[in-house]
Design a protein around this nucleic acid. Structure first.
Lengths: 139, 139
DNA sequence: TTACACCCTAGACCTAACTCCAGGGTCAAG
DNA sequence: CTTGACCCTGGAGTTAGGTCTAGGGTGTAA
C-alpha cells in the first residue's frame, strides 16, 4: 500500500506520461516491474526517484543511452567501469558548464547594450543587439 | 575573394555539413545568400560566425526556433522585444546552470564513493554507486 | 572542350524520444 | 454482476534536426 503504485500514480508523481514509463521499461532504464495476477504493473517509490534521476540527467544533456549505461545494474557491473564512466561524464559536464558560463556572459553583455540603447533612444527601432548577433562577433 | 566563400568552404570552416547550411537557410536562421549567375550561393565570413553562434546556443539547449527568434532581423525587430527575449533566456540559463552544478556535485559524490570502495576492496564487484543510483536517493 | 570537383533542387529518409491508437482485459464500488 | 476508471500489448505516428538521393547544372584548369 504505502509503497505500492500503479502506473498512473507513478506517472503523476514523477511528471512523465504512462507511455513514457512503459517506454523506459522497454529500454531497460527501469527494471521490469512485477505484475498483479491480471497483468498490471506494480511499482514502488524507488521507481519514482529513479525516473526523477533520469529526467534530471536528461535535462542536462545526457541521452537515454548514456543514462542507461550509468544505471545498468546488470550482474556483471563492476566498480571500475562505473568509476570510469562517472569520470568521463564529469569531464563532459565541466566543459558544458564552462561554455554555459561564457554564453551567459555573452547574453548579459547583449542585454546591457540593449538597456543602454533603450535609455538613450527610447523609441529606437534599431537594436544594437540584433545587429551584433546577426554579425555574430566572436566571444 | 578574401571574404567570399562557396557553401563547401563555409561548411568546412564552421564545422557543419553543406546540407545543414541549406537547411538553416530554409529555416531562416541564415539570410538567403546571394547567388552567382549560375546559381551558386555566395557567403561571407559573417555567415561563418553566425553559424558558430547558432551551434553554441544549440549546444546549450536552445532549440532552433528559440535561436531563430533571437536572430530575427526582420524589419519590425524592435529593441524592447529583443531585450525581453534576452532577459527570459538569461533566467532560463541561470536555472540550468544551477541544476547543472547540483548534478555535478552529485556525480562527484558518487565518484568519491567509488574510489573509496576500490581502495578498500580492490576486487569488489559490488559498486556502491550502482546500488545508490539504482535506488536514486534524492539530492 | 573536356575533365572533375563542386553546386543546385525537391523530396524521401533517418534517429531519438516519445505519443497515440485499436482492440481488449482488470478491478473496486455499489 | 455490472459499470466506469484504469491497465494491457503491438505497432503506427510524430517532432526536431538533420542527412541522403536522384537527376542535373557550373566553373576552371589543363
Amino acid at each position: 500500500m504505502g509503497n505500492s503504485f500503479r502506473i498512473g500514480e507513478v506517472a503523476e508523481r514523477s511528471g512523465v506520461s504512462i507511455d513514457t514509463l512503459r517506454y523506459y521499461e522497454r529500454r531497460n532504464l527501469l527494471p521490469a516491474a512485477p505484475r498483479t495476477p491480471g497483468g498490471y504493473r506494480i511499482f514502488n517509490s524507488e521507481t519514482i526517484d529513479r525516473v526523477l534521476f533520469i529526467k534530471q540527467a536528461q535535462d542536462l544533456g545526457f541521452s537515454l543511452d548514456e543514462i542507461g549505461s550509468l544505471l545498468s545494474t546488470n550482474g556483471s557491473s563492476e566498480c571500475r567501469r562505473v568509476r570510469d564512466l562517472l569520470d568521463a561524464k564529469l569531464t563532459e559536464l565541466d566543459t558544458r558548464l564552462k561554455s554555459m558560463h561564457e554564453f551567459h556572459d555573452k547574453l548579459t553583455r547583449y542585454l546591457a547594450e540593449c538597456e543602454e540603447e533603450l535609455k538613450r533612444h527610447p523609441d529606437s527601432a534599431e537594436c544594437p543587439v540584433v545587429v551584433e548577433i546577426a554579425h555574430a562577433e566572436r566571444t
